[in-house]
């Protein structure tokens, strides 16, 4: 039984042995269990006629649905642009030396993060009850709130201003993540505060800002479904209009869901490219892009056997 007895002699080479891989029995058990659940769900989805997959296929490219996607994308882009722009301003205000400016920005963030977006949307939608006439305090200017605050305008205001509060925190964290020496070096070179911010600090902060902003973007895409309560015909409301007529509730919700997944997936890929762009100079080798990974995937497979496999 002594292990010393089986000690191989000096000069033994690996070639004399057969390598026996470690066994992982629990991997098989867990894999089988999960696979069984997935198969059951799939079978149920396919066999239950109430899923109405034929209806899903029928309405998948319905003109109203496609228009709804258009409005969803429009809202996402406009509200994010407003959110990012205003968010940068708020972040700079929060880092300001002026106490009034700083406190105002903090109050903004507290109010807009502290109340539900749905409530904010309803507030903007009912702005005309608060201010029937919008004058901006300028004599001669008098705008009818009911005409200006259309459902779409209320949606943009509600989602954009809410997003700005979240973006300002993201941008502030990004700015604060940059080493103080960067600002000092820029200052010592005679660069102004604006130049330092836009040329030195923000481009570096982007590396910290982009990933959560990508998440915010995808979150915004889904959040736009809230404006269905304002009867803005975005993707969800377009589906609701159709199912309120034909009562095919589940198939149309599936249509909307599948489209949401498709669009968010496309954006996630784009986010990868953006992150790569702003990672310039920060690592010795930048991570591969989605396209490069795809190319590599096919390259490796076609190169198998020709000795190139495994080269990155």
């Amino acid at each position: 039984m002594s292990s010393l007895m089986s000690l191989p002699k000096v000069g033994t080479t690996r070639g004399q042995f057969t390598v026996v891989s470690a066994r992982h029995p629990w991997r098989w058990v867990a894999g089988t269990a999960v696979a069984a659940v997935v198969v059951l769900l799939l079978v149920s989805a396919v066999s239950n006629p109430r899923f109405g997959w034929d209806k899903v296929a029928l309405y998948f490219r319905d003109v109203a649905i496609i228009n709804g996607i258009g409005i969803t994308l429009f809202l996402t882009v406009v509200c994010m642009a407003a959110g990012v722009g205003l968010g940068v301003v708020l972040a700079v205000m929060q880092l300001s030396a002026n106490p009034v400016v700083k406190a105002s920005a903090s109050a903004y963030v507290t109010i807009f993060r502290g109340t539900p977006v749905l409530v904010q949307l309803l507030f903007w939608f009912n702005l005309s009850a608060l201010y029937p006439e919008i004058t901006f305090g300028i004599p001669g200017v008098s705008l009818d709130a009911n005409q200006i605050i259309t459902p779409l305008a209320a949606a943009v205001l509600g989602l954009g201003l809410n997003e700005a509060a979240y973006m300002s925190e993201i941008v502030r964290a990004g700015i604060q993540s940059i080493d103080q020496g960067q600002g000092e070096a820029a200052g010592a070179l005679g660069m102004s505060r604006i130049q330092t911010l836009t040329r030195v600090i923000l481009p570096q902060a982007m590396r910290v800002i982009i990933p959560p902003t990508g998440n915010e973007f995808i979150g915004m895409l889904k959040m736009t479904s809230l404006v269905s309560v304002l009867a803005v015909p975005e993707l969800l409301y377009s589906a609701q209009i159709i199912y309120s007529k034909n009562l095919q509730v589940v198939p149309l919700l599936l249509v909307a869901s599948i489209w949401y997944i498709i669009v968010t997936t496309v954006f996630s890929v784009g986010q990868g490219y953006l992150e790569r762009h702003f990672a310039r100079g920060t690592s010795r080798s930048a991570p591969p892009t989605a396209a490069a990974r795809l190319r590599k995937f096919f390259t490796v497979h076609s190169a198998q056997g020709s000795g190139k496999a495994g080269q990155s």
């Binding site: 080493d179 020496g181 000092e184 070096a185 010592a188 005679g190 102004s192 570096q204 310039r280």
Partner: peptide, 24 residues
Amino acid sequence: HNEICADRTDIGMVFQHFNLFPHM
């Protein structure tokens, strides 16, 4: 601040931790 910046252009500074701009 602008006047300070203008005066600094005549003075070069080298820091202990280099402080090069890493994104350039």
